[in-house]
Amino acid sequence: MARFYIIGFTVLLFFDTIAQCSFKLTAIHAEPLAMSVDWLVRVFTNPWIYISIAGYILTFFTWMTLLKKAPVGPAFAASHFEVVTVMVVSIWLFHEPITLFKLIGTILIISGILFLALAESKLSKQESNNLQR
């Protein structure tokens, strides 16, 4: 089961990161922002928008598959790790700076995910022990 979670959440992060970065690439290539037909044409003739849409669809189906088996609390927390993966990719792809707030946020997200995973593991062990009695 642990292998299912590791593979599943890796795939989820991959699709979500691709979707969000593709969406940003679409926005960059469609500049300047203007609510006009020309801007819409720039958006929808850009291949990144379709990669983004496909990424969001694949993210949705991956998430639904994971939720069938994963506990909701830790799964929801782990799904927010995409904030970290998007930040890391954005540093490389968009040359965005690493700030103190980003580092603190990353530490808090990872800590929260670890604490929830540990709490869920402890709760599962307690439930297992109670069932054995």
Rank of each mutant, 00 (worst) to 15 (best):
A2H: 15
R3I: 15
F4S: 14
Y5V: 12
I6M: 14
I6P: 08
T10H: 05
V11C: 12
V11A: 14
V11Y: 08
L12C: 05
L12S: 06
L13Q: 13
F14S: 04
D16N: 15
D16S: 13
T17I: 06
T17W: 01
T17R: 04
A19P: 00
C21D: 00
F23P: 00
F23R: 11
K24M: 10
K24H: 06
T26H: 04
T26D: 02
T26Y: 01
I28H: 02
H29W: 04
A30S: 14
E31W: 01
E31L: 04
P32D: 07
P32E: 03
P32Y: 08
S36N: 08
V37N: 09
D38W: 14
R42Y: 09
V43R: 05
V43I: 15
W48M: 12
W48I: 01
I49W: 10
I49N: 05
I49L: 13
Y50M: 03
Y50V: 06
Y50T: 06
S52P: 07
A54E: 08
A54G: 11
A54M: 13
G55K: 13
G55S: 12
Y56C: 06
I57P: 09
T59L: 06
T62C: 14
T62N: 13
W63H: 05
T65R: 10
T65L: 09
L66C: 09
K68Y: 08
K69A: 06
A70W: 01
A70I: 03
P71A: 08
P71H: 04
V72A: 12
G73V: 14
G73Y: 09
P74T: 05
P74N: 02
A75C: 03
F76R: 07
A77P: 12
A77S: 13
A78D: 01
S79L: 07
F81V: 15
E82G: 01
V83Y: 07
T85R: 09
V86S: 00
V86C: 02
V88S: 14
V88N: 09
V89Y: 05
L93Y: 11
L93T: 04
F94P: 00
F94N: 02
H95E: 10
E96I: 01
T99E: 06
L100M: 15
L100W: 13
F101N: 11
L103M: 14
L103H: 00
G105Y: 05
T106L: 15
L108E: 01
L108N: 02
I109D: 01
I109N: 03
I110D: 05
I113D: 00
F115K: 11
A117S: 15
L118P: 00
A119K: 12
A119T: 13
S121G: 09
K122N: 09
L123S: 15
S124Y: 09
Q126G: 04
S128K: 14
N129I: 12
N130Y: 12
L131R: 12
Q132S: 10
Q132D: 03
